[in-house]
């Protein structure tokens, strides 16, 4: 009674934490964590790999860098930002997860994500499925012709490609041209109906960007810049991402 308790735990100051705090605005507010658990109670990834958002932050604050670096949980968090939405102190857990993804050696990151990023880097259209621009163009024109010939009232439907000066540059998830091309048609019809001036492009046409999920900043930027350049080269005003 009456005695003071001295907390003898000295948190390890890890390089990773230093880097993270420098990178995040306000240090990601990591030090502000109240350990209330609002994050974990509303996170679908809670419990996987014995991890949850609160535990992840506590481990970070305690400098347990090895655990943060090695847990595959960082690939099971979707960085959906529901935790920070619920957090009374605005602790940026999703960004912490992103930075921990970056500590993985590139070749150790999930093969599917890595492969999708590589495909995007290797195709002028940035297609994560590796679809070539020639194939994309062929499929679009083929499907369009079929609709114009086969569907009464759609004789004048258009699906322009590389139309200089169009207002909208519409991108397209690779899945449609590659596996279910007819799914592209409803949006073309909607755009025609409202009189939108739009175009696809043979460069940077793919909507997806797995380099972002891979947490490879340079590759992510390369892909985004290529896509932005495609929009600018055609003189389009709006880069339209689809559903």
């Amino acid at each position: 009674m009456g005695e003071t308790t001295v907390l003898a735990v000295e948190p390890k100051q890890s390089e990773l934490m230093k880097k993270i705090k420098d990178l995040l605005p306000e240090g990601g507010n990591l030090n502000m964590c109240l350990a209330c658990g609002a994050c974990s109670s509303g996170c679908p990834a809670t419990g996987m790999e014995g991890m949850d958002p609160r535990k992840f932050v506590r481990l970070a604050l305690l400098g347990q860098e090895e655990v943060l670096r090695s847990t595959p949980w960082v690939w099971m968090c979707t960085m959906c930002r529901r935790c920070i939405h619920a957090c009374p102190m605005g602790v940026d857990i999703p960004q912490l997860v992103y930075l921990c993804r970056q500590t993985w050696a590139r070749e150790d990151r999930p093969k599917g994500i890595l492969g999708s990023c590589e495909q995007a880097l290797n195709t002028p259209g940035n297609s994560a499925m590796g679809a070539s621009s020639e194939d994309f163009k062929f499929v679009v024109e083929d499907v369009l012709e079929e609709v114009r010939e086969g569907q009464p009232g759609q004789e004048n439907l258009v699906a322009p490609i590389d139309k200089q000066g169009a207002y909208y540059f519409l991108n397209q998830n690779s899945r449609e041209p590659v596996t279910e091309p007819d799914e592209m048609v409803p949006l073309w019809k909607i755009l025609s109906l409202v009189g939108a001036d739009w175009t696809y492009g043979t460069k940077g046409w793919a909507a997806e960007n797995y380099c972002m999920f891979l947490a490879d900043d340079d590759a992510w930027e390369t892909v985004v810049r290529n896509k932005a350049k495609a929009v600018e080269d055609l003189g389009c005003k709006v880069w339209l991402n689809t559903e």
Binding site: M76, T78, M79, P110, K111, S116, Y210, L214
Partner: peptide, 8 residues
């Protein structure tokens, strides 16, 4: 977040 292609 890439979950669909992550293999998990």
């Amino acid at each position: 977040g890439g979950f669909l292609q992550s293999g998990y």
